[in-house]
């Protein structure tokens, strides 16, 4: 599967992506904002990637490729949708830190949500962002996400409690 959009292309995860994931997860600036806490062995990373190669309505994962170079720059996922509510949780991870600030995060967000609305038939996409992760929040807002509220002390990481923003995007709101 290849889903071509502005700046990026989404494709199905492949076992060979594990080496990219391992590199991204070794960067503390990347994992700082992720739920991931413990170091992963290469086998564990390979297993995570392999889980993503069997997509379903409730669990679709994508490897994000930069259109100009064809290189893998991150991954996205739409998880937890039920057919009745058609609401999925979005993950966006731009693992290549050298490419931050060039619009790939916004482009990956847009492409994944477009896929979710047009191909999967979702009605709503939501996500949790660390309240102080301004860079990510800006990217989500650019794609049309609305901050629906602030959950206090929802995450404990790096020695302190963090508030999380709940952000939502309805079909028709994607920009």
């Amino acid at each position: 599967m290849r889903y071509v959009a502005d700046l990026v292309t989404l494709r199905s995860p492949e076992p060979g992506d594990a080496e990219h994931h391992a590199r991204w997860f070794a960067d503390p600036e990347v994992t700082r904002t992720l739920a991931l806490r413990y170091p992963l062995s290469p086998d564990a990373v390979a297993q995570r990637v392999a889980e993503g190669t069997r997509p379903s309505f409730a669990d679709r994962r994508f490897t994000v490729l930069a259109n100009d170079t064809g290189a893998a720059v991150g991954y996205t996922a739409l998880k937890g949708a039920t057919p009745e509510n058609r609401d999925a949780e979005l993950d966006v991870v731009l693992g290549e830190r050298s490419l931050w600030g060039r619009g790939y995060g916004t482009a990956a967000t847009r492409a994944t949500c477009r896929y979710g609305f047009d191909r999967v038939g979702l009605h709503r996409v939501h996500l949790w962002a660390l309240a102080d992760d301004a860079r990510a929040v800006r990217a989500y807002e650019r794609a049309g996400f609305v901050t629906e509220g602030r959950a206090r002390d929802r995450i404990f990481k790096d020695g302190r409690w963090h508030d999380c923003l709940l952000m939502g995007l309805l079909a028709g709101e994607l920009r």
Binding site: E84, N85, R86, R124, H126, E148, G149, A151, R152, L166
Partner: peptide, 10 residues
């Protein structure tokens, strides 16, 4: 009350 998740359920 922390958030209103819009159109969250059918």
């Amino acid at each position: 009350r922390e958030a209103v998740a819009r159109q969250k359920h059918w």
